Amino acid sequence: MTVHSPMAPATDAPHFSDSARAAFAAAYPDQPTKLTHQLVGHELLTLDALATLAERMPASAVEYNLGKLPLGVRPEDTPSNGLSLGETIRTIESNGSWAVLKNVERDPAYGALLDAALAELESIVARSTGPMLHREAFIFLTSPGSVTPFHMDPEHNILLQIMGTKVMTVFPARDEELVPAQKSEEFHNGGHRNLIWQDGFKARGTPFPLEPGEAVHVPVKAPHFVENGPAVSISLSITWRSDRSVAEGELHSFNALLRKRGLPTGAVSERPEQQGIRRFVYRVMRKLGV
């Protein structure tokens, strides 16, 4: 049964203020920036509501493990916490774990929440990168002191802090020392999101401390890691793809095909959606199974 919080905001209240939308417009799509939001206390985002949601989700849509990890860890070395998902969420204050609920927009109530939040940003996004594509939402639940290792994601992303505190350290996108070209090619062909960490990287990142009611915009494939504060954390990630992010994925996948055949690869520009000829050739090769 979902627990309704007395703090839940009115359903027609804006999720982002005018000043938050202005800050987002100034940064999107290439720069990380801090924002504010109005979703603290929402009835769908309490621990009880999320445990109930998690227990009705398919196993493929949840991921959880021990949370106290090094900044760099191989996917196969990530340790299990030995608990069920429901137990993990209900006892997350003391079990030292990290959990993510993926694609929660498939649940009608959470889908409506995602749509309402993104609707407030849609016109800003459309001016820069075209329509919002493949809208998705993820919910992160983390124990005190948990670490999400150094990784990247393929979507435009805003992470909204709902409960507890954390620090997200965001690094520049398109830095091939952080993310080598071959890693991007592997990533866009199903490779894991985790990246190889070197201590010398840390100075290149910008830390964004987040408290409830704060958020951070993370550009596509900007590497980042997250360090949780001294209390349980709940964060909502609202994401979308764009013509630009789809084009980048196609061009890296094209380079992977070329590299496999010993052919020269091409640069992926800052405006990959404009590299129409290379994208067309890739689509033809993919269709022909070349």
Rank of each mutant, 00 (worst) to 15 (best):
P108Y: 07
L101Y: 07
A23C: 11
A61D: 11
I89E: 02
A117Q: 13
T36C: 04
A112T: 09
N81W: 09
E93W: 09
L44A: 15
P75K: 03
V100T: 11
P58A: 11
R90N: 05
V62C: 15
M57R: 11
L47T: 13
Q31G: 05
E43Y: 00
Y28F: 14
D107G: 10
L113I: 10
R56D: 12
L45N: 01
A27W: 01
L69A: 08
L69S: 09
T36D: 01
R74P: 01
P79Y: 03
L53T: 08
A116E: 10
L39D: 02
D107C: 04
Q38G: 12
W98E: 00
K68W: 08
S80F: 03
D30E: 09
G86E: 08
D48T: 13
L101C: 04
G111I: 01
E87R: 05
T33Q: 05
T46N: 14
H37G: 01
H42N: 06
G96T: 00
A26G: 13
G72I: 03
E93L: 14
K34P: 00
L113G: 05
E120P: 06
V40E: 04
R106T: 13
A61F: 06
G96Q: 04
K34L: 06
P58L: 13
A109N: 13
A99P: 00
A26H: 15
K102W: 14
E87P: 14
V62Q: 07
V73F: 03
D107M: 04
L44S: 04
T52N: 12
E87K: 00
P108R: 15
V104G: 03
E105D: 13
M57K: 13
G86T: 10
Q38T: 10
A49S: 15
I92T: 08
A54W: 04
E76V: 15
G67L: 04
A99F: 09
A119Q: 09
A25L: 12
Y110F: 12
A51S: 14
Y64G: 07
L66S: 12
L83R: 09
A116R: 14
A20E: 05
A26I: 04
L45M: 12
G82T: 07
W98R: 13
Q31C: 03
L66D: 05
V104C: 12
A51V: 08
R56P: 00
E76P: 10
N65I: 00
V62H: 09
E76W: 07
A109R: 11
V104Q: 15
G41H: 06
V73S: 03
K102C: 12
P108V: 02
D77E: 14
A117S: 10
P32E: 13
L47Y: 01
L45Q: 05
V40M: 02
G96M: 04
V40L: 06
R106S: 03
R56M: 13
H37I: 10
S80L: 08
A59K: 11
D107K: 13
Q31M: 04
K102E: 02
A54D: 15
A23H: 07
D107H: 15
L44V: 08
A54S: 15
G67N: 03
M57A: 07
L45V: 06
